[in-house]
Each structure stands twice: as C-alpha cells, then as structure tokens.
Design a protein around this nucleic acid. Structure first.
Length: 198
DNA sequence: CATGGGATTGACT
DNA sequence: GTCAATCCCATGC
C-alpha cells in the first residue's frame, strides 16, 4: 500500500525526514529515497514564495500530489506536496537508491554505473520515466506511488545540511540524506562523511 | 509582448 | 572548475 494523504498533511520538515527510506515507484521502476529537501512558502527559495499562481497552484493544493516542474529548461524535478490545502509546501525528492527495474533505468539514462542512475533530482525522474505530464497526479493512487519504509529502513540515520543549488535562503538546513549512502546527489565533506559512514 | 532567471546536468579544460 | 543547453512563466514595459 502507498502512503496515505494524511502522511503528507504534516509539517513539511517532518515529511521530508520521514520520506527518507520510503520507496518511489513508477511503471515497475522503483528506488529507495535517500535524499530530500523541504520547501515552504515562508522562504524565498520555494516556488510557492510568490503566492498562488497558475504555476504554483498544485503546491497550494491537496497533500500527496506530485508537483513536477522543468528546471533549466531541460530536467523534470519531482516534489511531494505537503501541508494543505492552502499551504504552499513540498518535499523535493533529490536521490534514490535503485531497487527495481535497474536494467530499464540504465536504458533510460544511458550511463554505466548504478550509482549514477538516480543520484540527482533530474536524473531520478529520467530513470523512472517521470515526465511533466504527471504533474498534479497524486502519489497514493498513481501512476507514481510512494510506499512506506521497508525492512532495513525502519529508522534510518539522517545527515542534515543546507540545500543544494539554490541562491536564496541557502543557509537553511533543510536537506536530509540517509547517512553513508553512496547514492546521494552530492557527497558531504570528507571529514564529516567519514564519521557517518556505515 | 519581451525579457530574464531558475530547486540541473554533462561535456570539456 | 567552468559553461552552455533550453523551457516555463512571472514580471515589467
């Protein structure tokens, strides 16, 4: 069973933490979430900061919907809408550990190494064949589904840090990674990473 | 209606 | 480390 809408109807930082270890699935392609970032209308890095517009309407919509947008004109990025309706908050899925359909992910991505399949927000959407036409669909009825944590991910150790690739509110520690995972999009500094490796 | 910037990636130096 | 590619849409004239 997929996570219910109530899972997403909570404070966005909680949802971002709790999504690490959960499983994203689309068309038989699946991976374990190892990295997330939280976004909220109260801070300028969030798309919802500008308020409700045609572009951001989904962010202010029902919790558990997929907010998918194109970044730099090229990449599709997948977010899970939280807290609402009427609160513009979402969790960006930034990296997955490939789980099912790995051979097809390689075909979709065209890269050799397994760690390169889903270690970035634009990469994982390509690996799972997620495109903009799924914007506004929900994550509990599909086509994209997010499942609860499975065995081995019951209570993952998390590393918290600043978000990646943004210019505004770059200091907020709203990025959550599975400690020691080789599948995160950007490694932590060597010293810190060493203390957190499994 | 024209313009500019962005939550990125991959190729190249 | 640097840089271009390329689309959506908010903003401003």
């Amino acid at each position: 069973m997929a996570l219910p809408p109530s899972f997403y109807d909570r404070e966005v930082l909680e949802v971002a933490r709790d999504l690490v270890g959960c499983v994203v699935e689309h068309e038989g392609l699946a991976g374990v979430i190892v990295e997330t970032e939280a976004y909220h209308q109260s801070e300028p890095a969030a798309h919802s900061f500008v308020g409700r517009t045609a572009r951001t309407a989904v962010l202010f919509g029902h919790p558990g919907q997929a907010y998918i947008y194109r970044s730099y004109g090229i990449h599709a990025l997948l977010n899970a809408v939280c807290q609402g309706p009427d609160v513009g908050a979402a969790v960006l899925i930034r990296a997955l550990q490939p789980l099912e359909g790995v051979a097809r992910m390689h075909a979709l991505r065209g890269v050799a190494r397994e760690v390169d399949l889903c270690n970035g927000p634009g990469k994982l959407t390509q690996a799972l064949a997620i495109d903009l036409d799924l914007h506004g669909t929900n994550l509990y009825e599909g086509p994209i589904l997010i499942h609860p944590r499975e065995d081995g991910w019951a209570d993952p150790e998390l590393v918290v840090g600043p978000r990646v690739g943004i210019t505004k509110a770059a200091d907020l520690p709203w990025r959550f990674c599975a400690a020691g995972s080789r599948y995160v999009s950007k490694p932590w500094p060597p010293g810190l990473r060493a203390t957190l490796a499994p």
